[in-house]
Design a protein around this nucleic acid. Structure first.
Lengths: 192, 192
DNA sequence: ACTTTTATTGTACACTTGTTCAATAAAAAA
DNA sequence: TTTTTTATTGAACAAGTGTACAATAAAAGT
């Protein structure tokens, strides 16, 4: 960790708290650097010493949340070695529970006027997690990076749709849905 | 169509051309309203009469491209009625060819500092197209909106990865990859 | 406790933003 | 062609942006 200087810690804490408070009132894209600094009682020049724009400050929170995502994603792996979609127990998937837990943040992340960068942070994280499992599997002739990108973003598609339906399903419902979908091709093609 | 007034047409054309020229020089997020208006020789107030921000101007282009996407997506349907992943002929998929054709635009759409809104336009379009096919299929107990969101975003995951690898594969390669992946679960689970 | 280092502050600058308004000019309607 | 409508212009405004610099104060190092 870099920040040894107590002044830096104090400043960043003040800015973080200010942004969090303001996010209760208005959307991220309408919050200005000036307003955050006014709220945090920090000089505007000091803000630019640590961040380039408001979004960078938010990104710091986001990276914290990505840690929890990793933990949530790894949860099913505590029970089995390799993840086979057809033998996946819905109750072990924790990713939707993670999103539910940080609902407030994900409403921001999926909002229209936010930069793509957050989406990529999320995508990369899931992609990375999936990828390390896929790499463990035997070769199937499919570009592994493409396969994990496909699967990672597929799950994100469900989260986007979930967000659009204002999270009206429970995380448990979403788990079951994911397992159903993962087995969909199987059943579809056996049936023919 | 709304714009009957020749002045509006002239103004919009000037703004469009100015933006296109500037996009050759620098990224979208660094192009200011003032600069576009200076380039287009249009009053800044006039810009705000038609658009709220630079991104709205770009969005007009984007919607044009979405028309071509629709045509490209519909291409395989000219050969078969319903799309079954296992009987999908790679050469009939035209979506990757569409992205390849508008490579320049998609580099912008997938760039980090662009708002999520473009991604959603793209997602919605593919989602809508997929959805109308899924709705035609027999009920399988899976929420159809979730399924199409899953599948639409899965394809977008591949496009994102493709973009990251700087489109080094051909569109034809991507087609074959997609078909392989669509049949992946099938082979994987038959094999066990 | 004293010295050195450096984060923070206040001030200033040129620039962009988003909005308003009366004056103008260009298009549509008669 | 003349009248009416309205898009465009130019000017001005308060506010935010990003950057720079010397002065200050609060840390770290000794």
């Amino acid at each position: 960790m870099k920040p040894l200087d107590l002044r830096v810690i104090k400043t960043k804490e003040a800015l973080h708290e200010a942004l969090l408070n303001m996010l209760k009132e208005k959307p991220l894209h309408s919050i200005t650097v000036t307003a955050i600094c006014r709220e945090a009682k920090v000089n505007r020049g000091t803000f630019y010493m640590h961040y380039g724009k408001v979004e960078d400050l938010f990104e710091e929170y986001f990276k914290e949340i990505m840690k929890d995502l990793t933990d949530s994603y790894m949860e099913p792996y505590k029970h089995v070695q390799t993840l086979q979609s057809n033998e996946l127990d819905p109750s072990t998937i924790r990713i939707f529970h993670h999103v539910e837990k940080y609902k407030k943040f994900y409403r921001i992340v999926f909002s229209k006027y936010v930069p793509m960068s957050y989406y990529y942070l999320l995508f990369d994280q899931i992609n990375r997690l999936l990828n390390q499992d896929i790499k463990r599997q035997e070769d199937n002739g499919i570009d592994k990076d493409m396969l994990s990108a496909y699967q990672a973003n597929a799950i994100l598609g469900m989260v986007i749709e979930w967000h659009r339906q204002d999270f009206h399903q429970s995380a448990t419902d979403m788990n079951e849905l994911l397992v159903k979908i993962l087995n969909f091709h199987f059943r579809e093609q056996i049936g023919k």
